[in-house]
Design a protein around this nucleic acid. Structure first.
Length: 501
RNA sequence: GCCCGUAUCGUCUAGUGGACUAGGACUCAGCCCUUUCAAGGCUGCGACCGGGGUUCGAAUCCCCGUACGGGUACCA
């Protein structure tokens, strides 16, 4: 298709403080979508300017999460690029240079107020009072002579307004007086704050579109002011709507929300662990805050890339609909070729059953079971409980009453089981078709509805009242084991029937 | 408190002044199919936050109110 959009340079700039969150993943996804749509570049940059909250493990989980979703970047800490380094802690020299430039131009100043002094102000309900904004040379020299630590603060204009041009909201106008009083640009430890670093890096890396969460909108005017003070051209701001807790009240937090009594995943690692397919999460996330069109909910990566545009992003915060995500995951599971589903299922089922992956992979029963459960699961984790019976040595009929078919007495169920056992032994060959034919004929002969007739066998074979299709299950198990289970069930039910009388 | 943003079925959304008796999807209910459970098919319930304007005409534009969300750090 013709590409009418200019190639964009976008970046995903997470801070490595913990696990990658769904909201962060969505931001990364939109970044990627826009870069790919326009034929531009997707840059990964690590914003680790807060050494107190730095968590070295988060970088791994971050790249793992992005790769899992199928996102790739053109420049970043791992692969380098022409605008490196891509880790902010390695870019301190840049920030120092531009901070000094701002100070020299009178747009920023050294503030010697200590954190304890600030704390006292705060206790009195006051904010910073710009006390060092216009120090005389002598005052400044005195502080320096004392060896006092300082921060560099931005001198926010005392009057006027600042306009943030946001691609999804239009112009947001803010009075400069409402911008927080002279925000810190460089901390006393020499590290820049987000505000300085993000502006310097986005400019130096030639970022054209800044996609980030809406929580940044309030500080965007400050950023606009910094761009102006430095004489730089601004990027296009695209503030993405916040992803809300499923209840719709409040941002998603680290705490797992509970839906229908179940705890739902919040970190990307949770989604991986709980059996979600990356394609489904991709599709779902693309639909939160953006939509393919009014009619289709399901689309491929390529289709999303071909249609994505930042101007179509919604400004409305969205509650996470886990039910819909699960439904979508089910759709994607059903669309998988059996071999692919097997590959996805292997680690989950092997772990749940306590079987070695290689052993399970070679087990023919597993192959035969997969098509039987494909349309019955929404999550990969749901497979094991559906097929564990096929791999257990012994079925325990702890509740013999379950072996009784609907509208049947225990004694009648014993008779059913007995008749079926005979069939299991005689059917030749032991195939789906033959079994079904024989059982249906027998049920009719005995005047029992097929559903009731089969119920005792379902429990005998699988130990459960809900299972994959029965005849298929018997075939998977084989004649011998099927006969053995039915015989045991029959014995259990007989003694239960006797006791009941 | 102050600042900013947002406001269509319970949820995700389509809708950019007339094509809207407001469309799709999830959820929920019912029916069909059916060896259980699913899957699938069909049907149904269900919304333009309120009030003022502007206009021949408003879900769509403006104002006020309300509600919700976000921000208000030497965190990002």
């Amino acid at each position: 298709m013709t590409n009418e959009l200019k190639p964009a340079r976008v970046r995903f700039a997470p801070s490595p403080t913990g696990h990658l969150h769904l909201g962060g993943l969505r931001t990364a996804l939109f970044d990627w979508l826009y870069a790919r749509r326009t034929g531009g570049q997707f840059v990964l940059r690590i914003e680790d300017t807060d050494q107190k909250r730095y968590n070295p493990e988060s970088l791994n989980s971050l790249t793992r999460g992005l790769h899992w979703l199928g996102l790739d970047w053109d420049e970043g800490p791992d692969c380098g690029g022409p605008f490196g380094p891509y880790v902010q802690s390695e870019r301190k020299a840049f920030y120092a240079t531009y901070a000094q430039q701002l100070v020299d131009a009178g747009h920023a100043y050294r503030c010697y107020t200590s954190e304890t002094e600030l704390e006292e102000l705060r206790k009195q309900g006051k904010e910073y009072d710009r006390r060092h904004r216009s120090l005389t040379a002598a005052q400044r020299a005195a502080f320096e002579a004392e060896g006092r630590a300082y921060v560099i603060r931005f001198a926010v204009p005392l009057a006027g307004t600042t306009v943030v041009a946001d691609a999804v909201r239009g112009n947001v106008v803010v009075e400069n007086q409402r911008i927080p009083v002279d925000p810190v640009l460089v901390k006393s430890d020499g590290m820049p704050t987000y505000h300085l670093a993000v502006v310097v890096d986005d400019h130096l890396m030639e970022i054209t579109h800044v996609l980030r969460g809406e929580e940044w909108l309030p500080s965007a005017p400050l950023h606009v002011l910094i761009y102006a003070a430095l004489g730089w051209e601004k990027p296009v701001f695209v503030h993405l709507p916040i992803i809300l807790d499923p209840s719709g009240k409040g941002k998603m937090s680290k705490r797992k929300p509970v839906v229908d009594g179940r705890e739902m995943p919040v970190f990307v690692s949770d989604f991986i662990q709980e059996g979600y397919l990356p394609e489904a999460v991709f599709n779902f996330l693309a639909n939160t805050g953006w939509s393919f069109d009014g009619e289709r909910d399901i689309f491929t990566r390529a289709e999303a890339v071909a249609r994505f545009d930042v101007k179509d992003i919604s400004a409305k915060a969205t509650a996470l609909d886990y039910k819909k995500l699960e439904w979508l995951n089910g759709i994607y599971i059903r669309s998988l070729a059996p071999a692919d589903l097997k590959a996805h299922l292997l680690p989950f089922v092997a772990a749940a059953l306590g079987i070695d992956e290689a052993v399970l992979a070679a087990d023919q029963r597993f192959d035969h079971l997969i098509p039987l459960i494909q349309e019955r699961i929404k999550l990969l984790t749901e497979a094991a409980p559906l097929i564990d019976w096929a791999f257990s040595e012994e079925i325990i009929y702890s509740d013999p009453a379950k072996l009784v078919g609907k509208k049947l007495t225990a004694a009648e169920s014993v008779a059913v089981l007995k008749a079926g056992a005979a069939l299991l032994q005689s059917v030749e060959p032991f195939t789906l078709h033959n079994l079904e034919e024989a059982f249906r004929a027998q049920a009719e002969t005995m005047g029992v509805k097929i559903g009731s007739f089969l119920a005792p066998f379902r429990v005998a074979i699988t130990g459960k009242t809900v299972s994959p299709p029965l005849f298929e299950s018997m075939v998977v198990l084989g004649r011998e084991e099927s006969v053995r289970r039915v015989a045991k069930a029959q014995a259990v039910l007989e003694s239960y029937a006797r006791a009941a009388v």
